[in-house]
Design a protein around this nucleic acid. Structure first.
Lengths: 154, 154
DNA sequence: CAATTACATTAATGTACATTAAGAATTTCT
DNA sequence: AGAAATTCTTAATGTACATTAATGTAATTG
């Protein structure tokens, strides 16, 4: 267990690393994302204060995700094996969030995804550039800009 | 706790129901799915023997998902509150699976998703019609048929 | 086992979003 | 504050997949 201060832009974990760490955000903002075969980034999650972020593949397998720092942050870094999860309640909640996200990705349009996002994470919207939100929603920044435009126009 | 025999086509849970149940599949095959605003089905998961299937929204909220029966099955039905999850390991694994699925939905083409599916769930492919696999992958049956065609042709 | 119903394939047309590119606005840095 | 870099917007063009529809094939059921 180690408390570390990290700076915006710093990369805590790279795709392919042995991923043995779990990060608990005390203050600031982290994100995890993947990079696909065409070099495009896809944000998997944002982690503001109070959140836990890690790569949920088993710890003996190379990481799928990158984890980096969006705002100067203080995080508690722990080894996966030194963690005993007591709060299964929280895990089940997270599964619920992922379930919603999957349904969303399969059925919702660009605008619908955006509206759902701002109502679910209003604070994040203020804190990160729009193109990162687009990346989380699974659309391009241009498409998001256009969607917002057509929404305002009515 | 109740052991029940269910027949193909039977619906165990509907969208909007108070969803207080968890189903453990002893034999057979269940699935969960949502229906979007345009009436389209989107399969969230398949649950063959040994799997647990439920709607992961909190039990005091109406269900997002339908759960129904794809093959005559024997399932153990439990109330959510009578369950104490001991195997957090399993929950974390499931989060890992959902993570992969989300990345997949955001970055992979129709064929890539299909290939990933058949290598991950080779048995399911044999047991359900292709249109259900398409629904799980987030594409139409027509698109899947076309993707398979162009793949074979090289 | 004939009749019905469900499923798969193919092809034509449509559409939401991607891509590319360029200029405007905002933020960051020295 | 001013320069540089990043981000946002707009518009033209492209593309993967959706939709619709028709035909063929396999699976169910009476």
């Amino acid at each position: 267990m180690k408390i570390i201060k990290v700076k915006k832009g710093q990369i805590l974990q790279r795709n392919g690393d042995l991923n043995s760490k779990v990060y608990q955000v005390e203050s600031g903002l982290l994100r995890s994302y993947s990079i696909d075969s065409k070099g495009k980034e896809h944000i998997y999650m944002f982690a503001p204060e109070g959140w836990i972020i890690t790569d949920n593949v088993s710890s003996d397998v190379p990481a799928d995700l990158f984890i980096d720092v969006l705002e100067d942050s203080v995080v508690i870094q722990r080894d996966k094996d030194e963690i005993i999860v007591t709060d299964t309640e929280k895990l089940i909640k997270r599964i619920g969030v992922l379930q919603k996200r999957i349904i969303m990705l399969m059925s919702a349009t660009a605008i619908e995804r955006y509206e759902h996002f701002i109502s679910t994470y209003p604070d994040i919207v203020q804190r990160v550039p729009q193109k990162l939100i687009a990346s989380y929603l699974g659309i391009t920044p241009e498409a998001l800009s256009a969607a917002k435009g057509s929404r305002a126009r009515k």
